[in-house]
Design a protein around this nucleic acid. Structure first.
Lengths: 146, 146
DNA sequence: CGTCATTAGTTATCATGATAACCAATGGAG
DNA sequence: CTCCATTGGTTATCATGATAACTAATGACG
């Protein structure tokens, strides 16, 4: 994600809104500020994940499996339901995570098409290692932003 | 951009925060909500731009040239200063926009390395056409989100 | 004036997002 | 049981983000 380095001033948005006769200056200003802020946070998170050999998506895959109550594995299709990402991208990412030893794959005994994905021990340790820094990073960021 | 379909509950974040002993539950909840909201807005904007043969980045390129006071063109390096995007990506995008007839390129008379980029008439009309819907979309989105 | 660090733009390569189209297994309806 | 729509996963292809490394022009400085 990327965005404008410098947000338009309230005055400038107002000019556009008046010219086009649509939209609400206040709401648009809020939206652009949010996009800029989210873009900056995503950059910081991506850098953090990369430092630990992960990515935003790989991290989220681990998280959704980890946070599942009463289970230790999920199908690819179940992960897909929990993340806003396309099927082929998840497929590719899961394959890479298996190759990297982050996920373990077991064929589903009830459905020959499917398989269950669980977090490998190494990745479970990695997750425990990076979670504190992740929460710290987010908290710091939110405090330092206006 | 993508993100979790369903945000963790306040309770769940608290559990993680307590386990890891880092971060502030409130701030983290706000951050995740922001990322989710920004992700959804970006999806809607991307779809809107695509419908009009643009993309988020192409739109922003037009906007930063358009909003420049007292000038009708910018150098690639000047656009780069105004957008949070890498040089090669901007280069590729500008090349595609010239090919598509959205931008016009004139060699800089003072610097043989550089050239000035201005908005072609067609793209100026396109911009006027899509701006109202853009502002409308953002305003609607911000109103409908909690 | 000649040297050389800086700047503008470009190219090569890779990572990671999407859609479309596909195969194989499943499982409900006749 | 057979047919066939649905589901789980995969493959092919493309769009668009990044970094590294390059060329050529610029311009400050000895």
């Amino acid at each position: 994600m990327f965005f404008l380095e410098e947000l338009p001033t309230h005055r400038m948005i107002e000019r556009y809104v008046e010219e086009t006769g649509s939209g609400n200056t206040e709401r648009i200003g809020d939206a652009l500020a949010m996009l800029r802020k989210a873009s900056m946070l995503v950059r910081k998170l991506d850098a953090y994940f990369q430092k630990h050999g992960l990515s935003q998506l790989r991290f989220l895959v681990l998280i959704v499996i980890d946070r599942e109550p009463d289970r230790h594995s999920l199908r690819q299709s179940e992960i897909l339901e929990r993340l806003d990402v396309s099927k082929p991208v998840l497929h590719r990412t899961v394959a890479a995570m298996i190759a990297a030893g982050h996920l373990e794959r077991v064929d589903d005994p009830h459905d020959a098409r499917a398989h269950q994905l669980s977090i490998a021990t190494d990745a479970r340790n990695l997750l425990q290692e990076i979670l504190p820094g992740y929460f710290e990073l987010i908290t710091q960021f939110m405090e330092n932003q206006t």
